[in-house]
Amino acid sequence: MKGKEITEGKLGSIMMTPAIVLIIATAVIPIIYVFYLSTRDIRGIMDMGYIGLENYRTIIETGRLQSALVATFLFGFGTIAFQLVAAMIVALALNVEFKGRNLVRSLILIPWAIPTALVGVMWSRFLASTDGYFNATLRLLGLVEGEVNWFLSRGTAIMMVILVDSWKFTAIFVMIFLAGLQAIPTTFYEAALVDGANRLQRFFRLTLPIMKPVILVALIMRTIFVFHAFDLIFILTGGGPGDATRVLSYYTYQETFSFLRHGRGSAVAFILFLLTGLVTLIYIKILGTKKQV
């Protein structure tokens, strides 16, 4: 080995530097700054000074934080439950040999690849009460009558946001599940066949237990990304009707950029950060960081 070559530790640090600098500048410092802002009374461009945890108290006392948590929970639970079940069915279907299987596999990736905002714009047009194609198709099939405005009532508004979110994101679950299913050796199934297990028994006693870790990873990842959901809600509902779809991320946006209360908005943002951090910690705890350094 040549003597002048720099040491391993030094090379590692050098190669790591650009990434770490960028992350400190665009994530670490901003998070600290968010906490700082959350302790100040800011209206518009006026900073009225330090007020301790007053912002946190206000968002709780007005009940807005709680309603945002409820909306986040409903949206999160709905999307994850729906997508989990739908994706498992689709993944099982795609795990069977049939003509055109590769084509269908490519197809389901398309909605995922499209920008979420464009998915929102598309579906916002389809869901338009009078001349939207979604409603028109339901009308042709005789499923609804007259004008339908899905975004007038809380229940249907949440349902539609979940539906559109699922149109885009179910593919992720499908991909992960399919990879998991294909890793199960055929011999397992042959043994089960010999034992006379039927299809359902094979699924619940064999496939599902083997798939448990895969499902868990997908579940935790999606839980984290539930907190990220913004684009669709911004475009489809604007948090409404009332506060039905005003999830935490949208509430943060509203406080800061619509009401220009940067202090309060930062308090919501910091709570959102703590929640994401909590789920991340659970994630790391359960799955372990891959590296033991």
Partner: peptide, 10 residues
């Protein structure tokens, strides 16, 4: 894993 909106104000 951070939500984009948490960083928006700063």
């Amino acid at each position: 894993l951070l939500a984009q909106i948490t960083l928006a104000v700063p």
